[in-house]
Design a protein around this nucleic acid. Structure first.
Length: 480
RNA sequence: GGCGACGUAGCCAAGUGGUUAAGGCAGGGGUCUGCAAAACCCCCACCAUCGGUUCGAGUCCGAUCGUCGCCUCCA
């Protein structure tokens, strides 16, 4: 296994080598918790979840940090997002942040996104931010102006190395607003002076105020991961200015490099358009879950590469749902037949099949986390398994276990799309017994050639979500 | 206007110079079945357009057309 990652900083795929052998330190920009998470959040955190899972699968000990932005994300109007949300919902700012933080985690749990090892809150790190800003002021990379502190972009040579943007270009942009107290329009806020009515405020060497958005990621990532650290992830839309500013602050303050590998994921589109409140196509995860199983959404997301944009249409998600069901069908069949399989160790044929499937899966994942390729490997494995399954008695219990374990490892542990309860026996005991009774009754009806009644039974069960499949060894069923 | 991505079958989507262009969905034809469903087998792509580099290009270069992102808040 040799993992290559597309490093946005270098603009090329590079062999991944962690700073410390066997360990990976990874940071991803988290959400600003002023509203419910939407499908775009879903794509982003599933994309990065896959990286964490695969790195762990490879044997790395991963320390994954993802912040919670609960202060400092400022709107055009100069208003803080959290403060604005708090007024909208008539809550205290911290109450609002806590409320949406909990909902964020709940939404991500349903998508089977593993929780980060550390979820630092920006408000809990204001002291560290102040220290960091002070260091920048002390070494001349930042200046104080009327109670606010700004980063002096002209004093940082490398500004623009991530986004490819140059100073002159930024200056020529017509929409950059010139704040009165900035020396230059592209300078960005490290610390903002709080107006008298501003609720979220901390005292600092420059007076009462609150931190800017960019500084929190620099401070919280390096605090827990060191500097430099291995991987920094985020959405492409934040490449500039957010990530560019993070680099500037981090490297200007310490003289050390910041993140070694930058990974950016592509955006989610709704029917060809960016999801935006103003476009009226803003879909929260909660609402999407009413229409689709979260596993289906996760699978849909993974069927495209993380770096590309993903256009979401109902048709495409429905197609993904049917594909996922196909995979589940194989896993169900294996688990169902395990009990009746002849005892025995795994055959060399199955061992070879499992080995080549695993290799093919890993080859795709090693290539910059190519999940569509990895999924294709699973479908191939699924087909090969189904062929073996067609001849009852071909597979021994050992074979079944090898197959089941591989699905569990690849589709379950790495891709996170395999629920543990894929067994028909997971229905409540009474339901199970009733279904078995109806199946037996139907068997007798069929034997008596009372097909009309038998079909009526089957249709009735189907309407209740119980699908029957007649096979050579009797009738099996799934519930869903 | 500046910077940057991308255009692959009806739909979704891999593929970064080399035999027959993955995989899924949909569709067509079979096998199996009392009939279905599932499963299995077979079929379904002149890789946006034009030009160039090369023995050889979906893959590299240029132009054109189109879509999208960033430059202002975004995951």
């Amino acid at each position: 296994m040799a993992l290559s990652i597309y490093n946005s900083l270098a603009r090329e795929k590079q062999l991944f080598e962690p700073l410390h052998p066997g360990r990976v330190h990874m940071y991803v920009c988290g959400p600003t918790v002023y509203n419910d998470a939407h499908l775009g959040h879903g794509k982003t955190y599933v994309n990065f979840d896959i990286m964490v899972r695969y790195l762990r699968y490879m044997g790395y000990q991963v320390l994954y940090v993802q912040n919670i932005t609960d202060v400092g994300h400022i709107l055009d109007s100069g208003e803080d997002r959290i403060v604005q949300g708090a007024r909208r919902e008539q809550m205290q700012p911290m109450q609002l942040a806590e409320h949406y933080t909990r909902r964020y985690f709940a939404d991500m749990d349903r998508l089977n996104v593993l929780r980060p090892d550390i979820s630092p809150r920006a408000t809990g790190h204001v002291h560290e931010m102040i220290d960091w800003i002070q260091a920048l002021v002390d070494n001349g990379h930042a200046y104080v102006s009327d109670g606010s502190v700004y980063f002096d972009v002209s004093r940082f040579e490398d500004y623009g190395k991530l986004s490819g943007r140059r100073l002159e270009e930024a200056q020529s942009g017509t929409r950059v607003q010139q704040a009165e107290d900035k020396h230059s329009p592209e300078d960005f806020a490290l610390w903002k002076k709080a107006d008298p009515e501003h609720v979220m405020r901390w005292s600092s060497p420059w007076g009462e105020g609150y931190p800017g958005w960019h500084i929190e990621c620099t401070v919280m990532s390096t605090k827990y991961l060191g500097q430099p650290f291995d991987i920094h992830g985020g959405g492409v839309e934040n490449k500039f200015p957010h990530h560019e500013c993070e680099i500037a602050q981090a490297e200007a303050a310490t003289g050390l490099p910041f993140a070694r590998y930058w990974v950016h994921n592509g955006m989610l589109m709704i029917r060809g358009e960016e999801m935006h409140k103003s476009l009226g196509n803003f879909i929260t995860l909660e609402r999407a879950y009413e229409r689709w199983d979260p596993m289906v959404l996760r699978f849909f997301i993974l069927q495209s590469h993380y770096r590309g944009p993903l256009d979401m249409t109902e048709e495409a998600v429905d197609a993904a749902a049917r594909g996922l069901e196909r995979l589940y069908g194989t896993v169900r069949a294996v688990r169902r037949q395990l009990a009746s399989a002849p005892e025995g160790a795994a055959s060399s044929e199955v061992a070879r099949l499992a080995e080549s499937s695993r290799a093919s899966f890993e080859a795709s994942m090693d290539d910059d986390f190519n999940t569509p390729g990895a999924i294709a490997a699973l479908f191939d494995f699924s087909r090969a398994t189904n062929v073996l399954l067609q001849e009852p008695g071909t597979l021994t219990s050992g074979d079944m276990e090898v197959i089941d374990r591989l699905f569990g490892r690849l589709a379950g542990d790495v891709l996170g799309v395999l629920p543990d309860q894929l067994r028909e026996s997971d229905a409540p005991e009474l339901s199970r017994q009733l279904i078995e009774l109806l199946i037996e009754t139907r068997r007798e009806l069929r034997q008596a050639r009372a097909y009309e009644l038998a079909d009526k039974l089957r249709d009735g069960l189907s309407a209740l979500g119980v699908q029957l499949q007649d096979g050579p060894q009797g009738t099996s069923w799934t519930i869903g």
